[in-house]
Amino acid sequence: MTVRVVVADDQELVRAGFSMILDAQPDIEVVAEAGDGAQAVAAVREHRPDVLLLDIRMPVMDGIEAARAVSAESECRVLMLTTFDVDDYVYDALRAGASGFLLKDVRRDDLVHAVRVIAAGESLLAPSVTRRLIAEFTAKAAVARPTVPASQRLAVLTGRERETIKLIARGLSNAEIAEAMVVSEHTVKTHVSNVLTKLGLRDRVQAVIVAYETGLIVPGESG
């Protein structure tokens, strides 16, 4: 199956470079490019891609608003492009429905891998930078707004499912969760699916947000 992608970045050379790398893959097709957020939303509406590769800072409509619009009206998954100097926007992008992040100086192989991972329904949580950003900005959000007690929001989960969401929030893959819980990877996939379904979540990124916002996970804690 071919992964259909829209590439959105206001820098033409960056946009063209990403498109060239992705189009060279036998299983990926770049169906459109966009130079601003409004064009990105329009391209998703027209072409119905699987993945939108979207710069977090865009003219006309910024990447966060574009991600929110795309996530609200389509099944297209959003992979945000970011740099360390725009960290303040990362939490908002997560809330807007982004399924992962890449630094704009990403290596060719990592870019291709990220698009495939996002298209497959996973979230790009493995890189340490993403875990750090999630912890930092969910902590900021917790100060800005009251958290929902874990006992209320997570009451629908079983004990194993609560354990699963905690491990997801620490950035563990399914294989790593299986090892930690001493169960099969298939069982972990079932637990993850149940967590997302019961809590009405789009993907693992949203599960991470819930874990922090409910206080199930405290930024910086270990174990």
Rank of each mutant, 00 (worst) to 15 (best):
T2I: 02
V6T: 13
V6W: 09
V7H: 05
V7L: 05
A8G: 05
Q11S: 12
Q11N: 12
L13H: 09
A16K: 06
F18I: 02
D23I: 00
A24R: 11
I28F: 11
V30K: 06
V30S: 09
A32E: 07
A32D: 11
E33T: 13
G35V: 00
A38I: 00
A40P: 01
V44A: 09
R45M: 09
E46D: 14
D50S: 04
V51R: 05
L52A: 11
L53Y: 01
L54S: 14
I56C: 11
V60T: 10
V60G: 12
V60M: 07
D62I: 03
G63A: 12
G63V: 02
E65L: 15
A66L: 02
R68E: 05
A69W: 00
A72E: 13
C76W: 01
V78S: 10
T82W: 04
T83S: 14
Y89G: 06
Y91E: 11
V106F: 07
R107N: 13
R107Y: 09
R107L: 13
D109C: 01
D109K: 03
I118S: 08
G121C: 10
E122S: 13
A126M: 03
A126Q: 10
V129N: 08
F137S: 06
F137M: 05
F137P: 00
A139N: 08
K140E: 14
V143I: 12
V148A: 07
P149T: 03
A150N: 02
S151D: 12
S151K: 05
S151F: 03
Q152Y: 08
L154E: 04
V156E: 14
V156C: 15
L157K: 03
G159F: 00
R160S: 10
E161C: 08
T164Y: 02
I165L: 11
I165C: 08
K166C: 14
A169H: 01
R170N: 12
R170L: 13
G171I: 01
L172A: 10
A175R: 11
M181S: 09
V182A: 14
V183G: 09
V188H: 06
K189R: 15
K189G: 15
H191W: 13
N194M: 08
V195D: 09
T197C: 12
R202F: 04
R202L: 07
Q206K: 06
V208L: 02
I217M: 09
I217L: 15
I217V: 15
P219N: 10
S222C: 00
